[in-house]
Simulated assay, not measured.
Amino acid sequence: MYVPPGWPSEVLPPGNPDWEASAVAWLLDAVPPDYRAYGVLRRHPLALARMARHHVNATVEAARTGYRGAAVDLKEHLPPHAIEAVLEAYRREGPRLVKLAASIELVERALRGEPFVARMDTSGHRRTPR
């Protein structure tokens, strides 16, 4: 089965016998550990995906806000090299979180039953499906 670019390598492609179990395990790793206490999220992977999507999107926004204010908020408390290290952590974490959010969205779409179909562009190359 075709999976689009950005599909998490830890999740089996839809249609495989254990794909939903692999999706649940992966999604639980993307959210705070306390989410594991809710059986409803294991029984209903789509609900877990939805919650994970909202959680990670909020984390992306928090990281952006943190990055924008870190230098000002920390300038009286940390030396310049430490502030730069904090900003570098944000610069590394931000893209990771954005990629994670996109992968969660793909898994959520698959859990909703949306098929992924590889489409060719006019030059005959595969392009990312919508």
Rank of each mutant, 00 (worst) to 15 (best):
L41H: 14
L41I: 13
R42K: 15
R42D: 12
R43N: 15
R43C: 11
R43S: 15
L46A: 14
L48C: 12
L48I: 10
L48E: 08
A49K: 08
A49W: 09
A49T: 11
M51W: 08
M51K: 13
M51G: 12
A52C: 13
A52H: 08
R53P: 00
H54K: 15
V56T: 06
V56M: 00
V56H: 02
V56A: 01
V56W: 02
N57L: 12
N57A: 11
A58F: 03
T59E: 12
V60L: 04
A62K: 04
A62V: 00
A62N: 05
A63P: 01
A63M: 07
R64Y: 08
T65L: 12
T65Y: 08
T65I: 12
G66P: 03
Y67F: 13
Y67E: 11
G69F: 15
G69D: 14
A70Q: 08
A71H: 05
A71E: 12
A71N: 05
A71C: 04
V72L: 14
D73G: 11
L74D: 07
L74R: 05
K75C: 09
K75L: 03
E76S: 11
E76P: 00
E76C: 01
H77E: 05
H77F: 06
L78R: 02
P79I: 06
P79F: 02
P79K: 06
P80F: 04
H81R: 01
H81M: 00
H81G: 00
I83N: 02
I83V: 06
I83H: 01
I83F: 00
E84A: 14
E84W: 07
E84M: 09
E84G: 06
E84T: 12
A85I: 00
V86N: 00
L87G: 03
L87H: 03
E88G: 05
E88S: 10
E88Q: 13
A89K: 06
R91G: 06
R92C: 06
